[in-house]
Design a protein around this nucleic acid. Structure first.
Lengths: 138, 138
DNA sequence: GTTAGTGTATGAGAATATGCATACACAAGT
DNA sequence: ACTTGTGTATGCATATTCTCATACACTAAC
């Protein structure tokens, strides 16, 4: 369905964190694929769709897609579109856990810095995300 | 102890992921602080130590330290070294709610841009903080 | 005062990232 | 044939990142 593409598109975000834009796109799309959010064989968002949605250059998006293609996560069909690979590389659970840990630790550090209880922040995040999922699901 | 610094130093890794080196250093050091490897007030690894350990330029390391300083996570003392910032005294209870909200949104943004589920991170924070209360602190 | 260890600073150069504009090549539908 | 929507490609300009080399300024210890 288009809806999957649209949801993925809406979920894409770029932050001025110092991380290159193409890397942010690459990681988010990889996450969407790894989570099954974009099923094997399904059409990916168009490069132009992503470029417009994020207000980013087409070549920048292509950079991300090129790397996804190189790692076998997607396959590209010229003149047609890009699609999730039939058998995308299984996501590394250990690496995933490490990234979650890193995020968690960084949050604790930031909370410490600002004199705030990290637990309170975590609870706030949970309530925020709950309310966002009530908007309907596919 | 030196050992804390040495452990942090040994744990530092640079990967050719497209993420700028200074960003990788920034995030890993912030993570070390949040994990408690580097306690408030403790001396950070020397910029030159990091530069040598990672075989990276001193200015690149400085870039990372500058940003950590700018966000208040560390404090720099010229001619002496850099230290983990002390926890600020908790004062405004009203302004605290705003900071919690701000941090929560920042965490969600960070997680999303890295292709990670914010809820997973929140849960990880909760379990980490539980264990810290049980096993004693510091 | 000297020395050693810290952070701070500058300039040159190469590589990369990004935007902007302009195309080209291919596939599918009309 | 034509149009539309894909991915592919180039050239130019700018900003950032990173390395290398070379210092300077400050602090603490001797």
């Amino acid at each position: 369905m288009h809806t999957q593409v649209q949801r993925t598109l809406d979920a894409l975000r770029i932050e001025p964190s110092g991380v290159p834009i193409y890397v942010q796109i690459r990681e988010q799309l990889l996450g969407a694929i790894g989570a099954g959010w974009l099923a094997p064989g399904a059409q990916m968002p168009t490069m132009r769709q992503v470029a417009v949605a994020l207000r980013v250059d087409l070549n920048t998006v292509r950079h991300a897609y090129d790397e996804l293609d190189a790692m076998g996560a997607i396959r590209t069909v010229r003149g047609v579109g890009t699609f999730v690979a039939e058998r995308p590389p299984r996501r590394d659970l250990a690496a995933e856990a490490a990234r979650i840990d890193s995020l968690a630790h960084r949050l604790v550090a930031m909370a410490m810095t600002e004199g705030v209880d990290p637990v309170a922040v975590a609870h706030r995040v949970l309530t925020l995300e709950e309310r966002q999922e009530q908007g309907g699901e596919g």
